[in-house]
């Protein structure tokens, strides 16, 4: 619920776990004072800090009992500037070995505990997985719809240009020339469709990334040739029926003037 802490140098905002929110009766927008005490021998050092709740975390894990602040704030409250105790790893991908990352961090940085934010990562991965499944289905439906669209367009074109095809044949065009003509047109449709599809996909991915994960998606331009290839393939497949129809046009219809 609410929002993330977006700015790295934001020293007044915090996110609190759902259990914390319930226990302290806090909701988004509330400001509260956090007090930190530490005893050194007979001396007790106490510091207080005012924080505003910008988001409430609910993972059904131990994150529900935690308060999240920027690193700088945590270091200031605890009086340990520049120090780290725990690095929590959350990677937004399905097959990322987050636990291995955490272990490697623990090995590389002494006195630091590496830990994966399992619940949070799993929740995000679940969403990601569902979105991937949904996008896969949307892609299949879009491919079928575009194939039908190309087929309809091509069939209309063949019907409209029946006389032209008959004329081409009557002046000596072999079937392979007619096939080449329509497949070339389908290829051009496929290339344009692929480029437009890539751009629209990029915009949609950004919208989903920002609205669901508060992250922008890095464009992967190496996917563009694959997108164009699939689009051209679909356009060519969808052209089979219209091309067959074009090839079957009898040139005699031109002379008959039908």
């Amino acid at each position: 619920m609410g929002d993330w802490i977006h700015e790295q140098n934001d020293t007044s905002s915090c996110m609190i776990g759902a259990a914390v929110a319930e226990k302290l009766n806090l909701s988004i927008g509330d400001t509260f004072e956090i007090t930190y005490s530490e005893q050194y021998g007979s001396t007790v050092n106490t510091s207080a800090y005012n924080l505003t709740v910008v988001g409430i975390v609910m993972t059904d894990g131990y994150e529900d009992n935690q308060i999240f602040v920027n690193l700088q704030v945590a270091q200031e409250i605890t009086g340990r500037p520049g120090k780290l105790h725990t690095i929590q790893v959350s990677a937004l991908c399905n097959a990322c070995p987050v636990e291995t990352f955490a272990e490697e961090i623990q090995e590389l940085i002494p006195y630091v505990e590496g830990r994966s934010v399992k619940q949070l990562a799993h929740a995000e991965m679940d969403i990601l997985g569902k979105i991937q499944n949904m996008m896969f289905l949307v892609t299949i439906v879009a491919l079928i719809a575009s194939a039908l669209g190309v087929m309809t367009t091509m069939i209309t074109s063949v019907i409209e240009r029946q006389k032209e095809i008959g004329l081409m044949k009557s002046v000596g065009a072999e079937n392979k020339k007619i096939i080449a003509l329509f497949l070339s047109e389908a290829t051009i449709i496929g290339i344009i469709g692929g480029i437009l599809g890539f751009l629209v996909g990029l915009i949609l991915a950004q919208l989903i990334g920002i609205s669901v994960f508060s992250l922008s998606v890095t464009p992967r331009f190496e996917i563009l040739p694959i997108t164009i290839g699939i689009s051209v393939g679909v356009a060519l497949l969808a052209s089979i029926l219209p091309v067959r129809r074009a090839v079957s046009v009898e040139p005699a219809i031109v002379l008959r003037g039908e």
Binding site: K169, S170, V171, G172, E174, V254, L255, G257
Partner: peptide, 13 residues
């Protein structure tokens, strides 16, 4: 088709 191309010229109404 090839034969027509080589041998026949067509003029339509």
């Amino acid at each position: 088709t090839r034969f027509r191309r080589e041998n026949i010229g067509l003029i339509f109404q």
